[in-house]
Simulated assay, not measured.
Amino acid sequence: MTQQPTSDERRPASGGQKAAARNRAALIAAAREIYAEHGLDAPLSAIARRAGVGQGVLYRHFPDRSALAMAVLEENVRQIERAAASDGVDLAQVLGVLTWHQTESTAFVGVLHADGAASRSGTPAYAVELSQRVERALRRLLPAGHPLASQREDLMIAVGMVSGAVTGPTREHRERRARAAWRLLGVEVGPVRPYEE
């Protein structure tokens, strides 16, 4: 005969807020990878599998596909902001982080074009806000006399132009094209990699 556990012995704790934060971070990282491989229409079940969680956990954190995509885009922007706020960092290094996100995410590329499209109807407000945050982070590091500092719009036009060049079948190919575009604009870019604290 199997003995039922008493109320104090039931299940081990789920890990609480720490486990929830880990699961959320794992879902965002998995979504970034899956979206890079298969686009924004990739099955959510593939994202949950890659994160090592069940679909129920995914839906507890992100009630629908757009909530997950927005979380990934928000994390991309946060990485750029954190990189720009780091001690001893320069514009070239932050452009390297930006370029990494450009090569990883076509959805992020769309966000970078959103501010210029703000006057057109249908541009989501969150996309405009994310684009403006990227611009503010970059502008803080833009030294006087830099090629992108001469006109107010030059910075985000250049970012948009590089985004347009980021095409190709592999991340390496997209990175080569992005670096070539920055070179043509006369702008130095640091190592193309994600920001790590």
Rank of each mutant, 00 (worst) to 15 (best):
R133Q: 06
L98A: 08
R65Q: 14
G52P: 02
T99L: 00
A125K: 13
E74P: 00
A48F: 07
V109Y: 01
L141R: 03
A92E: 06
L73D: 12
S105E: 09
V109F: 04
E135N: 06
L148H: 08
Q132G: 14
S66Y: 11
Q93F: 02
R82S: 10
L91A: 10
D115V: 08
T123P: 04
R152I: 01
L98V: 10
P143L: 09
A67W: 07
V53Y: 04
H146Y: 13
R139C: 07
R139E: 11
G54L: 11
E74F: 03
A137V: 07
V77P: 00
V97E: 06
D115H: 13
A118G: 10
G116F: 02
L91K: 08
Q79D: 12
E75P: 05
Y59G: 10
Q132R: 13
A117R: 09
L91C: 13
A67S: 08
A137R: 05
Q93M: 10
E153D: 14
A107H: 11
S121D: 13
D64P: 05
D87L: 12
R78H: 12
Q102F: 14
A92Q: 02
A114G: 05
L98W: 07
A48C: 04
L91R: 11
Q93I: 09
Q151E: 03
V57F: 07
T99A: 03
L138E: 01
F108V: 01
A51M: 07
V94T: 01
T123D: 06
T103W: 00
D90C: 04
V97N: 02
L142H: 12
V111E: 01
R120T: 12
V89T: 11
I80R: 03
E75C: 01
P63F: 05
A107W: 02
A48P: 05
T106W: 11
R50F: 12
H101C: 11
M70V: 13
L130I: 06
A117H: 15
W100I: 02
F108G: 00
L73F: 12
S119Q: 13
R140H: 15
E81L: 08
L95I: 12
A67V: 04
A67R: 04
P63Q: 00
D115E: 09
M70Y: 05
L73W: 10
T123M: 10
V89E: 03
P143E: 11
R65F: 05
R82A: 05
A51K: 09
S150K: 07
P124G: 09
T123L: 10
E153A: 15
